[in-house]
Amino acid sequence: MLLERNQTPLLSERFEVAFNQIHESLRKIVQIKDDRFVVLVKAGARNFQIVDTYKEELEQYAKLRNAIVHEKTEIGYYIAEPNRSVVERIEKIASIMGRPNYALTIATKQVVYFNMDDKILDVIHAIKEYGYSQYPIYQNKECVGLLSTGAIVKWMAANVQSSAIYLTNILVSDILQAEKALPVKFAPKSINIFEVESIFEKEHLENKDLEAVIITENGKCNETPIGLITAWDLIEIDYTAD
């Protein structure tokens, strides 16, 4: 019987392994000096959706872990044994939180962008074809921000002449002279979702507007955009999916 138990991990042992894996993931995600499990969960839930998704469960697992581990009286002996469904659940969460979660997996990958001297009609055609509401704009090979469909509509409303709008010779630069480009940040393709969330959170805490994070090869503003992430992209991540 002892040999069989050594060959097959106890549910309590599997639980402890998964708990420790989550603890390590929390350290990497939250990155605060206090690395106590519950403190990391509370702090992480405020800034990271993945932690907030599992906050209540993780807090309960912390209590169960304390009961299992802290009252262990000898090696290999646990005072309590979690049921299989609990163990399988915490192992699933450990797997989800331990994934690389590269930001490109949630980014808009077919980024459509324009130059300041492009015609606004080209942008309007892109809106019809792709349905995007924001487009990176470049000047001298460097991105200056995003042009939104809202800015175009606002400019058009201000330039109606006798119930007509003439766009044939209007350039992107004409719109952005009247409507400010939306602010962006840049990140390399190696960035993960948690780091993108941190960028948005930092800007928010400093009362700065940030419309999107543009992903390029090395995170430089003069490189071709290969992905675009808005705050809504982060909100819509479903961490509960298999």
Rank of each mutant, 00 (worst) to 15 (best):
V112P: 04
N140L: 14
M116K: 08
I106W: 15
D122Y: 02
S163F: 08
V111L: 02
C143D: 05
M116A: 08
S163R: 11
I106T: 13
Y113P: 08
K119Y: 15
Y132A: 03
K109S: 15
L146Y: 01
V111S: 02
I124W: 06
P136H: 13
T108M: 14
T108H: 11
L146F: 02
A158R: 13
G150N: 03
A107K: 08
A126W: 00
A151S: 13
Y135S: 06
Q134I: 07
D118C: 13
V144C: 08
Y132V: 03
L121H: 06
E142R: 09
V153I: 10
E142F: 04
T105K: 11
Y135E: 04
V144P: 04
H125Y: 08
G150Y: 05
V111K: 03
A164E: 11
Q139K: 11
A164K: 06
T149H: 04
A158L: 14
D117G: 05
V160R: 03
K141N: 11
K154I: 11
I165K: 06
H125A: 14
D118Y: 02
D118F: 02
I137F: 00
Y138I: 09
K128L: 15
V144L: 11
K154A: 13
I120S: 03
V111F: 04
I137L: 10
I165S: 09
M116H: 04
S133F: 06
I106G: 15
V112T: 12
I127N: 04
Y138K: 13
Y132F: 14
Y138L: 06
G145H: 05
T105V: 13
M116Y: 07
I165T: 10
G150V: 03
N159G: 09
Q134R: 14
P136G: 00
P136S: 05
E142A: 08
K154G: 09
F114E: 00
T105F: 09
A126H: 01
F114P: 00
P136Y: 00
Q139Y: 04
N115L: 07
E142Y: 01
A157I: 05
Q161V: 14
V153Y: 01
D122R: 10
Y132P: 00
S162Y: 10
V123T: 03
D122P: 01
C143Y: 08
M156H: 03
S162F: 08
G150H: 02
P136A: 12
L146R: 04
M156I: 12
